[in-house]
Amino acid sequence: MARFQACFEGNKMLRRKAKKRYLAILGPAGATEVLQKRHAELFGQIKSSQAAIKEIRSEQDTRIIRCSLECADSVLAAIAFCNPPMVALDMSGTIKRLKRRLPAKVNTAAGSI
């Protein structure tokens, strides 16, 4: 029984999916590449590959990028230091929830002019 439990726990560990976060960013064209470069320069190539920053969708000035949960803090910090400037509007564990909250966030960002 103990041997069976150990095998089961081992399989559970192997099947665990890496947790991701989806970020909505307000920025110009090429913002994802700028962010990837800045993140790599600030935190190193190893951390950057762990972060796995990837653009999922883009509409006009708004981009949805995906990164790993464990590196979300460093990605958010890198966004603050990017040039041309960009703003992290929202972060969520799923694209669905992010897209649902996005219109309110975009209006808030635009209204703060």
């Binding site: 910090a77 603050a80 400037p85």
Partner: peptide, 22 residues
């Protein structure tokens, strides 16, 4: 602070918190 004088130079609360943690 963000020091932003234009809307596109703002820094979100989450990014500020991340910089504070760093």
């Amino acid at each position: 602070s963000s020091g932003a004088e234009l809307p596109d130079r703002q820094v979100s609360g989450q990014s500020l918190d991340a910089v504070l943690r760093i």
